[in-house]
Amino acid sequence: MNILVCISNVPDTTSKINFKDNNTIFDTQGVQFIINPNDEFGLTRAIWLQQKLGAKVTVVTVGDSSCEPILRKCLAIGADQAIRIDVKPQDGFQVASCLASLCEKTKYDLIITGRESIDYNGGMVGGILATILKIPYLANCIQLELDGSNLNLQREIDGGKENLTASLPIVIGAQKGLVEEKDLIIPNMRGIMQARQKPLEILSPANTTCFTLVQNFEKPAEKGPVKLVDAEDIDGLIDLLENEAKVL
């Protein structure tokens, strides 16, 4: 079984977000990059399938050489090989079509993306990729059990869960729930050493067409100071919420 895990290289969750060049470019100076948290849940699930069924796990990222440290980290976590498609990602369609051409060349039974990346928050690459490949996509995937080539799946929906069945191949959008926080694998020394020997292949993009263009960025307006209400004055708070904020 071949599993492909799509990895997005994103700013650490504590990062302060700033822009440069007249607010047209994200300023990466001083920003630490990490594996997109949703993708890390997906990668962990893939490693479990590797351990249980001997599945081969490939990680792929669409990005320039600055993404290599996180690919090495994925290898240290346990992925068998890594691929970098050498182009700066600018739009979800561009990323999805680069990934699609990889999947047309090599047959993957299970393709794992994250629910969304925490930088541009497109929430789009998985669905578009699956549609290009003409295979199903399951968003917000919180359970994946494999029985031969049949799958039992769960999707988180607003106010509940949906149970589904499918057969391979499929693309899923991973998120917390697929595995839990405590299940995440912290690379050990041996993993880190082995990662250095594992293959990291660099491919040229097949297609770099974008469907959208980001023109500029803006930060939310500074908000005014909090209005403090005395703990004894609950009526005062209710009054403000009702008559000033008008939310009750």
């Binding site: 959208t212 263009l213 023109q215 960025f217």
Partner: peptide
């Protein structure tokens, strides 16, 4: 909105 509500961007459709 982008960067999980830490910023906004103006996006043009091509």
């Amino acid at each position: 909105s982008c960067f999980t509500n830490k910023a906004f961007n103006e996006t043009q459709s091509e």
